[in-house]
């Protein structure tokens, strides 16, 4: 239960911060998470939370406007199927968070040294 709450809070942090500040906040939050969190698997945890946060925002967009039309049009512009854009949108924050959190021990070690 505690893990679930942590996950929801982290995902919400990614979503709210992205909404307020922009996409670049994702690695910043992941960095902070990496510094605060303990135990194994925290990179995967952060990646999933970031993806979930952005998925939530994407769902909000879908409920508000013609996102699928936009996806179809942009897919045609970029010469890729529209679902690729959705996947990219979800993978992008996940990878950012995963890579950042993975590098946290190195960052910590460098800072300590």
């Amino acid at each position: 239960m505690r893990t679930f709450v942590k996950f929801v809070l982290l995902a919400e942090a990614f979503a709210v911060a992205t909404y307020g500040l922009g996409w670049w906040i994702v690695p910043v939050i992941a960095l902070v998470w990496g510094l605060l969190a303990r135990g194994a698997g925290k990179a995967r945890f952060a990646a999933l939370a970031a993806t979930t946060g952005w998925a939530t925002l994407l769902l909000l967009d879908v409920s508000r406007g013609p996102v699928s039309v936009m996806a179809t049009q942009l897919g045609a512009v970029m010469n890729v199927p529209s679902f690729v854009l959705y996947i990219l949108t979800l993978i992008f924050p996940g990878l950012l968070a995963f890579c950042t959190t993975t590098l946290v021990p190195t960052v910590r070690k460098t800072a300590t040294a």
Binding site: T18, Y19, G22, W23, L60, D61, P66, V69, M70, L74
Partner: peptide
């Protein structure tokens, strides 16, 4: 790609707007 895919402020947000 960051500002483009950002679901709050990027292209998906434009669709919603």
């Amino acid at each position: 790609m960051g500002s483009f895919l950002d679901p709050a402020n990027g292209v998906w947000g434009s669709a919603a707007a």
